[in-house]
Computed example of a mutant assay.
Amino acid sequence: MTTNDVLHRLTPLIRARALHLPPDSAVLSSGTRLEQDLRMDSMAIVHVLEDIEDSFGLAIPDELLASVYTVGDLVNIVRTTSGEEGRAA
Rank of each mutant, 00 (worst) to 15 (best):
L58S: 13
T32Y: 04
A26F: 09
Y69H: 15
S67G: 14
I60P: 02
V68C: 03
T11N: 11
M40P: 00
G83L: 07
V46D: 00
R39Q: 12
S30C: 10
V48W: 01
D73K: 01
I77S: 05
V6Y: 01
E53T: 00
E85N: 12
A18W: 01
G31V: 02
L7D: 06
T80W: 08
F56P: 06
E35M: 13
L13Y: 01
T3F: 09
G57S: 06
A44S: 12
T80I: 11
I77M: 06
S25M: 05
D54C: 03
M1H: 10
E84I: 10
V68N: 02
D24R: 09
I52R: 00
S30K: 08
Y69S: 15
M43E: 07
G57P: 05
I45F: 01
L38Y: 05
G31T: 10
S67T: 15
A44T: 04
L21Y: 07
R17Y: 00
G86E: 08
S82V: 01
L49D: 00
L34S: 06
R79D: 06
L28G: 06
E50K: 14
A18F: 02
H20E: 14
A26N: 11
V46C: 01
Q36K: 10
A16Q: 12
G57T: 08
A88T: 15
G72Q: 03
D41G: 05
S55G: 13
R17F: 00
R15H: 01
F56I: 12
I14L: 08
V78A: 07
S30A: 14
G31P: 04
L38A: 04
A89K: 09
D41I: 04
R79L: 13
I45H: 01
A89M: 11
A44F: 00
L7R: 09
M40V: 01
S29I: 01
V6I: 07
L19W: 09
R39F: 08
G83R: 05
V71I: 09
M40S: 00
A18M: 04
L28Q: 03
L21W: 03
I52W: 00
T2H: 07
I60N: 01
D5Y: 10
L65I: 07
G72M: 03
V78Q: 03
R15L: 02
A59T: 13
V27K: 11
L58Q: 08
A66M: 09
D54I: 05
S42T: 07
L19P: 04
E63G: 10
A26M: 11
T80S: 13
L28T: 05
L28D: 05
E63R: 13
S30E: 12
